[in-house]
Write a protein that binds this DNA or RNA. Structure first.
Length: 216
DNA sequence: GACCAGGCACATC
DNA sequence: GATGTGCATGGT
């Protein structure tokens, strides 16, 4: 059964790496900004960008909403794609202002499905970013799928190549209990495995998952 | 210097 | 509907 296999993988990863302490961020707002900035980008670069926003004291909804887009782009420069990401942050803030008055608290009462759809309607927020925000900023039981998740699932024959985001997400969500803490840790552990072992090339020989019986 | 990193929107066929 | 491309910095 898949649920058993997914459990074995989780236990092996947790045993190997321990708790990952995600999401790295002090506030819901910082998590949201980080989720957009980390698109296709190494987290260490995002940290530099966030440090810039903090040192300029603009890491609040109101301040970022007011900040000039070019100025914002300069501050987030280390995160890469800074022009497009500045626009994406602005798109998010525009929606956040118009619909929720820039208050994270106003999002708490919104149902997960509705919030997800509204986030997806913001230009620059796709499935992974939306789900990261739902899980890590708002504690909704949504499984986040990213490049690491896809690569690991494919390499360990949980899915076939070319399977879309929603199907991979469903694989995890329908075979695991809808538990925020579990989804939080599971995704973080998959990223950890991806960073340390499951790289694009060369394929990994000493991956901890290779010791699992179904991967022998 | 090549390759990679916690995507997404858009153009083109 | 599938496939290709631009966006960009910083670490290995």
């Amino acid at each position: 059964m898949l649920s058993g296999q997914l459990n074995d993988i989780y236990n092996m990863l947790y045993g190997s790496f321990g708790p990952q302490g995600w999401w790295p961020g002090d506030t819901q707002f910082e998590i949201i900004i980080g989720a957009i900035l980390t698109q296709n980008t190494n987290w260490s670069n995002v940290e530099k960008a966030i440090a810039n926003l903090k040192s300029e004291k603009v890491l609040t909804p109101a301040k970022l909403h007011k900040l000039n887009t070019n100025k914002l782009a300069k501050l987030i420069r280390p995160a890469g794609y800074f022009n497009i990401k500045a626009k994406r942050l602005k798109n998010f803030l525009h929606w956040f202002d118009e619909s929720y008055n820039l208050r994270p608290k106003n999002l708490e009462a919104v149902t997960t499905d509705r919030l997800r759809n509204e986030l997806l309607s913001v230009k620059g927020i796709g499935p992974e970013t939306a789900d990261s925000i739902l899980l890590y900023a708002f504690d909704r039981p949504v499984f986040v799928v990213d490049a690491y998740t896809t690569r690991i699932a494919s390499r360990h024959h949980l899915i076939e190549d070319g399977v879309d985001y929603h199907k991979i997400q469903k694989l995890f969500e329908s075979n695991l209990p809808a538990d925020v803490k579990l989804f939080n840790e599971y995704h973080a552990l998959l990223v950890r495995l991806g960073k340390d072992f499951c790289k694009p090339t060369p394929k990994c020989d000493d991956c901890p998952l290779n010791e699992l019986p179904h991967n022998a």
